[in-house]
Every structure is written in C-alpha cells, then in structure tokens.
Design a protein around this nucleic acid. Sequence first.
DNA 1: GTGGTCTAGACCACT
DNA 2: GTGGTCTAGACCACG
Lengths: 123, 123, 123, 123
Amino acid sequence: MILDFDFTSPIPLYQQLRNQIIINISQGKLKTGEKLPTVRALADESGINSMTVSKAYQLLKQEGYIITDRRSGTVVSMNNRTNTINKEDEEALKLLLSQLHLSGMTKDNILNITERLYAEVVK
Amino acid sequence: MILDFDFTSPIPLYQQLRNQIIINISQGKLKTGEKLPTVRALADESGINSMTVSKAYQLLKQEGYIITDRRSGTVVSMNNRTNTINKEDEEALKLLLSQLHLSGMTKDNILNITERLYAEVVK
Amino acid sequence: MILDFDFTSPIPLYQQLRNQIIINISQGKLKTGEKLPTVRALADESGINSMTVSKAYQLLKQEGYIITDRRSGTVVSMNNRTNTINKEDEEALKLLLSQLHLSGMTKDNILNITERLYAEVVK
Amino acid sequence: MILDFDFTSPIPLYQQLRNQIIINISQGKLKTGEKLPTVRALADESGINSMTVSKAYQLLKQEGYIITDRRSGTVVSMNNRTNTINKEDEEALKLLLSQLHLSGMTKDNILNITERLYAEVVK
DNA sequence: GTGGTCTAGACCACT
DNA sequence: GTGGTCTAGACCACG
C-alpha cells in the first residue's frame, strides 16, 4: 500500500489516511481479512504522529471497514454492507454533480467520467 | 431560495452556505445575473452571523460563482467554466465511488443513483 | 479620452477614475490647460454616479492635477511639481519591486519592464 | 522581523501586514522554509487582533507566499514563481510612473530611484 | 443601504 | 499549543 499525504491540505491527516485506506480496499489492494500495518509502523513509515494514525484506525473501525482481532491485529473486515447510499454521501454527490454541471460539463461527459473513475477504483 | 443549516455538523457554516448556494445555482433557482440577498439580509433570515455569511460570499467570489458589482450588489456570474473536472473533485468522486462500492452496491446501481441525483440537481 | 471601469474591482470607482485621468495627463492625451468633461457629462457617458465623479475631481484638485476655473470649468493645471518621490509612492514602489523579485524576475528584467511601461505612459 | 503599523491609514491592517511580510521575504529577512510567528504570537506582539493576523496569513497563503504545514506551522514557501508581471502589478506600476513623471522627475531620475529601491528590497 | 474591517472573547479540531 | 470557526457589536468607505 502506497500512502501519500498533503501536509498543506485543509483535509486533516487522519481523514486523508482513512480515505486512502478505503480506496485501497475498494481497489482490492487490501483484501478482506488482510492485516494492516500496526499503528506504530505506519506512523514511522509515513512521518505522521501515531496519535493521528490511531485516530484514523478508530474511525475506520467505527465505520465497519476494519476490526481489531486479538490474535492477528488490525484486519480488513467490511462489516458494513448496507447496499444503500447514506444521506451524507448523497448530499456530497449532489454537491459534486452541481459543481461539475456548473463547470460547463455535459451530462454525458459527467457520466463518462464517473464510469472511468469507478473503473480506477474497482478492480 | 430555501436554506437549512445543521448547527451540529462538523462542516463549517460558511461552507454549508456555499454548498447550498452552488446547488441552488445548479438547479436554476438562482439564475446568472440574478441578485443574491445582501449579507445582512441573509444573516438575519438564517440566524447566522453576518461575518460568516460574508466569508461564504468571499469564497464563492474567489471560486468565480458570484461577483459583487459595486453598483448593484452581489450577483450570480459563473465566471469559471473550465469544462473539466479538477483534481480535488476527482479525488472526492473516487472516494465516494469507493465507499458506495464497499457498501455492496453494484455498478449499475451506483450509476443509476448518479443519474437520479444529477436530475435532482440540474433542472 | 477613453475610460474603462471594472465594477467588480476592489479599487473604488472614484479612484479608478482618478488613476485613469492621471495616466491620460501623463500620456499627453490631456494637456495642461485643457478642459475636462463636466461632472455630469462624464457621469452620463460612463454610467457612474455623479457623486462618484465629483469625488474623483475633488481628489485630483486636492492633489494639484486639476483646478476649477470660474470661466472655463475644470482644467488640467499640474500645480504640484515637487521633483521628488513622496513617501507613499516610495513604499508602493518598494512593495511592487519586492513582488516582482519574488515572482522570480531578474533585476534586468524588472528594469526593462519599467522602461517599457514608462514609454507607454510618457509620450 | 520588525513590524510597524499605521493605524490611521486607509490601507487595512491585514494588508499592511501582508505587504510587510512580502518585503521581509524579498529582503531575505524571512527565508524560504523559515517559520513565521504563530498567529497569536504576532497578534500579541503587534497589538493587532488575531483574526486580523489570520486574515493576512490566509491572503499570503492564497497568493502562494506561505503555506501551513499541519505538523510544523506556517512557513515561507514561495510557490508562485511565474517569472512574469501580472496585469494588476503592471497597471499599478504604470500609475506610479505617471505620477512620478508628472511630479517633474526626469526619466533618468525615475530609473535611478527604481534601482535604489530595488537594492533596498533585494539583499 | 451596501460590503468591508476590526475587536474581544469563546470554543473546537488537529497534531 | 496550533490554526480555524463563530458571535455580537461597532465603525467606516463606497455609491
């Protein structure tokens, strides 16, 4: 798993980490049952404070993407298959679609890009 | 224009306001050239401090969605037609698609929802 | 004299007007003793409020660029030949030179542009 | 870094601060990568409200002169080397040159002063 | 009446 | 301890 942080971004580091892990799971680079690095290891590798890494892991746990298994450490679990879109994601998607529309893109153009990005993220 | 704020959300109020104005423009409820409420009027209506409203307007100005004409106040301008998706939006969309995929939704399901939300937001 | 205003600029309209008149005098498009349009005429032409035009004229009067002559109206006078640079202009020039330097331009480049702009403005 | 404000000036305090920081960077008193004082420290030192200082920092950030690294605070970055003069600076310089010309200064005199001020500001 | 500026003081999120 | 957010309330410059 390759991680890459923007320390100048307005997005908090723990969220950047969470986001990247989610994308990695989606892309199959991290598979269900697979172990994630320990908090400490990931902190050392990436130059991020371990408190920050811990916060990201807690968030992912809470959202059901990972669990902490007593024997094998932190593993991908995917314990959150709702098969539906939640309200926040729906709002975020509406906002994105509005922005793309207002940038002048056509409906077809937007849907094509959505398909392209979907393919990048589901392999 | 109907505005509705979540005072408990982690999203800053000025961003919530910005987002809602963008969606309103996209939906055609605010048309190019149309005047927005004055900073103070909007502040009074919504119960938000005028500095916070002002910050939202400045952000929208900077992003090219609105301009302030020294004679006639603040109007919708759409001075930012790039016809392309920028990097941040692309990242945000990838993350959303990952999350939807991991929630168990099929590709078709995701694309259908995208089309439905697009229709809600472009009228 | 061609005037052109940016109603969305942070620079007040009366200052934009003042600045343009000064450049026109410098370029010789308005000569010493020559009459300026009446406040009303200029206001009508340019779509600017006459109070605003009046304010620009007052400023120019105060700075010695023009005088109001009882018989001939407002004329260019140039009653302010100090032969020196004042403190504000010096500060403004230092700031500009800093900005140009920090944009990566070389000394020669900056001096060349200064000469070019001087030629544009003194004819 | 020595700061000095004119509380009676029409130039907003946050701009005065921005301007002085730019000159300090240009003069090498603040070097690329060097940390700036925290918002609060600068506010305390200078007697200016921290919101006002924050506004100056945000402006400098937006213009690419500084960045805030989430780990190490605010540092000089110079992420805006265009190697060219932008339109606003060009207009401002033309106006300044007009004013100097109309004050009776010769071309040589003006160019000499430009060189002198350049030397003050680039060390 | 409009937006812009500024302050004092409070609270929060992030590292 | 850092920057970011928010408020209430005041004043000013502009048109």
